[in-house]
Amino acid sequence: MTTALLRIPAVRLATHLRRLGAAALVVASVLTAPDPARASREQTGDDDGCARDGADLPLAGAHFAPRRVEGGVAWDARFVVASDAASSFRGGALRFAAPLPAGEELVAAPGLGAIVEDGRIAGLCVGAGARSGRTVLASFFQPLSGDGASALGAPIAAGRAVQIVDTSVGDARLELVGAPLFEKHVGFVAPRAVSPGAREEARRLAGVREDVSASPIYLRGEDARGGLTVRVVDARARAETSAIAVGVAFAGVVGGLVLAARRLRRAASVERADALLASEIDAAAKEPAG
């Protein structure tokens, strides 16, 4: 009993000492951190392109395709490096126009690392190993809980390169909300400043085929600087709403036809009887008398 009572303060003392030690370690690590910016970086790849070079990656174009996955949307990004920089490419930082939505994660890939600022991915560290020709491929996972409005999770790069965001996610479609700069056209959405030539060039660079039914978003980094909001519009749900209206219209038309059939019945039978009578009178008149 006495031993047990003595053991409680001893355990408490050990806990306090461990907490003190951990706090000392945190203070020491903050004091000895060489560069706050580097400390915020979270490297997931095997090649620290940002650390070695530090230069920003010059971009010519990009394409982002969303995919529905369990618990959210996966963004498959294809960044196309500018042709003059491709030959001397040794890695660099790819800054995004706006930090990605909270909770969005980079899917680990060789040569790629996320630049994290305030808990959100603000760019990519691209190592030489991540490049294939002029292309850098990366995937992100954006958790989505419902079908309401949410931040666009496409990793749109900063700068003036025209980038393409696909909006078809299975049967659903992403629609921009509260983006007055963007104009909706047949087959695409883009700010007025993005010319048809720029769109064509962006498609050529990203290897994207024109598709009138896809309605992709063409934009530059500066168009998405403040972040963009999208709404997930489920085509199936929209069709169901239309189906209710169509069903009501159908019931109305059938009711109208039944009513018309009832009303026409008497008039039609009178017409028919008159016509039959007239034909009988004609036939009788034609018969020779006697």
Partner: peptide
């Protein structure tokens, strides 16, 4: 047929055909 060529009868036939 002549007995079915009246306006009301024709409309009745249209309605019946659709139903």
């Amino acid at each position: 047929p002549a007995e079915d060529s009246g306006r009301a009868r024709r409309l009745q036939l249209v309605v019946f055909a659709l139903l």
